[in-house]
């Protein structure tokens, strides 16, 4: 049999540039973010995820590039020959502070993780500069391009009731920073279900099903991949949500056990998060070559049979 046809690849070019005064050499096409990380220069990111194409919307990763009028998103911009990049200039720090502060002033960031908490501290975020939170939250009935009058005494927020419309996961959009990850994961970056999209405009832009129908009426197949990529806890497994509501969620009491999904022949790796001898959440490692962190409804949610304890023996 003839060997498979070899397609000739263009020889890889190396790009030489400067990041924070250090010369770097990376393969052509490497993003500024990847180059920074190879230099151990920390660049905060919120909407970036290794397994999804960058959408560069959060602007937390902006860096200063000499000769560029505006700051540049490191997550999506490839490093170019002789670029001079600063990751901690005054302008960069100011923008990062403001991005984090804008988010903290409008959405609940309390479950966004330890990195975000540390960055808020490091960049000096003070959301109360914008006044007290408005009593009523987002005006979800607002039509594109319209909003009610404001006197500026209170700051508008995205606060709104939690959407609990199914048994598997909940949506708390008062925590949503509109990073687009759930839309991408539900769409052509992973699941190809397209149950979610961004609707509305401006401050009223939000993640939605068509006509805001509850998930059971939408195209959702409950793979949970949107939950898997959500960075702020806006999407949460119902099991976790219920424990948190009951004040019983405690990660220090949890163990993680790797196993292989028993349902089909693909062999996805599952990470079983166990608390008090009960599975409370299932994830898959993001660097897994098969799953990239994504699962289907069976691997993600089909674990209840494991915890069906035999009924206590009836006395004879």
């Amino acid at each position: 049999m003839a060997p498979p046809l070899q397609v000739k690849q263009l020889p890889e070019r190396i790009v030489h540039a400067t990041i924070d005064g250090q010369r770097v050499a990376v393969p052509e096409g490497t993003t500024i973010l990847a180059a920074c990380r190879s230099q151990a220069a920390e660049v905060p990111t919120l909407c970036f995820l290794e397994t999804l194409a960058p959408v560069n919307v959060c602007r937390a990763c902006v860096v200063e590039v000499e000769g560029s009028r505006a700051l540049v998103p490191a997550c999506s911009r490839p490093l170019e020959t002789d670029m001079v990049v600063s990751t901690r200039s005054k302008r960069v720090d100011k923008s990062r502070r403001m991005v984090l502060e804008f988010l903290a002033s409008s959405v609940d960031m309390s479950l966004a993780g330890p990195d975000v908490e540390r960055w808020m501290e490091e960049y000096g975020v003070d959301p109360d500069r914008y006044g007290p939170k408005a009593a009523a939250g987002a005006d979800l009935d607002a039509r594109a391009g319209r909003h009610g009058p404001t006197v500026g005494a209170e700051r508008a927020t995205a606060a709104q009731p939690v959407k609990v419309d199914n048994d598997l996961y909940v949506r708390d959009y008062s925590r949503c920073i509109l990073c687009y990850k759930c839309v991408e994961a539900c769409g052509d970056q992973a699941q190809h279900t397209f149950a979610l999209a961004v609707a509305g405009r401006g401050f009223d832009a939000h993640i939605a099903t068509e006509f805001e129908v509850p998930l059971p009426e939408s195209a959702c197949v409950y793979c949970g991949n949107c939950v898997g990529v959500c960075p702020t806890g806006a999407l949460m497994f119902k099991s976790e949500y219920d424990l948190r509501q009951a004040n019983q969620w405690d990660e220090s009491r949890q163990t993680v056990t790797d196993t292989i999904c028993p349902y089909c022949g693909v062999g996805c790796t599952l990470e079983l998060h166990v608390q008090d001898n009960a599975i409370v959440k299932v994830t898959s490692p993001m660097d897994h070559e098969v799953t990239s962190g994504h699962l289907c409804i069976k691997g993600r949610f089909g674990f209840e049979f494991v915890q069906q304890r035999p009924p206590a023996a009836e006395p004879r």
């Binding site: 919307v57 959060c58 991005v99 500026g152 508008a156 509109l178 401006g202």
Partner: peptide
């Protein structure tokens, strides 16, 4: 504030905070 597309944080929230101010 009305015409921001809402995609990026600086404009989506910045235009709101500017109007309030």
């Amino acid at each position: 504030r009305d015409e921001s597309c809402g995609q990026c944080v600086p404009c989506r929230v910045g235009t709101v905070r500017q109007e309030e101010l």
